[in-house]
Simulated scan of single mutants.
Amino acid sequence: MAPDPSTAPSTDTPHPNLPGTGAPTRAELWPPSGLRVVSGDLELRHLDEDLLFQLAALGGEGIHDEDFMPFTFPWSRGSAVEVGRRILAYQWGAASRITPESWAIELAVVRGGEVLGVQSLTASDFPVTRTAESGSWLGRRHQGRGVGTLARLMVLDLLFEGFGARTATTSAWADNGPSIAVTRKIGYRPNGTATLAREGKPAGDVRFRLDREDWDARAEALPPEVTLHGVGPVREMLGLD
């Protein structure tokens, strides 16, 4: 039986959540969703649900040798499902705790629509300290191809040029040669060492810092062009404007 036109809902009444009806956009509701850093064919992009599940699957394929642990907490050990679930849980938690006082911005490293890894910035009281820590990991099959260096340069461009940082910090275990090599290549300076627990044993943690003056002096190490998208709303969310 055909519906009675007099009782059918009107198609002329706009839905409050449809575009063009005055409802906030996704980027207005959650500014990091519009954040992108682009250099050539490489992008750093907000971890939307599709990219996040790709990242979880990538992590489950393997990130490092079984006899080496590059992270403070051994979240990367276990089955593909266990590792993937830890990645999802961490990323969901990090995304829910972004405030001017404390934040972690996690960006997928993407090339040709494929997720290669993740690049992060974390900070506490950034409007005062203007200091943030960078961190990253790549899927094992994407390592050793220069992606890590370029992605680090891109996220540092976001940090210094986009967010107005004064200092970037990072650290790595003393036996993590590839990570330390990238850090030194970019121009970080040594910033002390510490002894931390790694899987129940003491291990040396080597720390580095990159000040704005050093970043400006390292212009020749930058990619040919880095383009930032969606930075303004994120700056406002982080209390920088």
Rank of each mutant, 00 (worst) to 15 (best):
A23G: 12
S79D: 11
V38I: 12
R209A: 12
G117D: 09
L35S: 00
A94H: 06
L51E: 01
L210Q: 05
T122I: 10
H46L: 14
W103R: 07
P19C: 10
E213Y: 10
P202E: 13
F160H: 03
L116W: 01
T167N: 08
E61I: 05
D41I: 02
G177W: 12
A174D: 14
G22Q: 07
G40I: 04
G59V: 00
T21N: 10
S33L: 15
D48A: 02
T11H: 12
V231H: 02
A2V: 15
T13F: 13
S102H: 10
T72N: 07
S10P: 02
Q54F: 01
P100H: 08
L18Q: 10
D41S: 03
E28S: 07
V109A: 03
R207G: 05
L18Y: 09
R130H: 06
F53P: 02
F68E: 08
T25G: 10
P100K: 12
L240R: 13
A57S: 05
A151C: 04
E61N: 11
D125P: 03
R209N: 12
S96T: 13
T7Q: 14
Q91D: 04
T169V: 15
R145W: 08
G78C: 08
D157S: 07
E101G: 06
G146D: 07
R97K: 09
V182P: 00
D48M: 06
V81D: 14
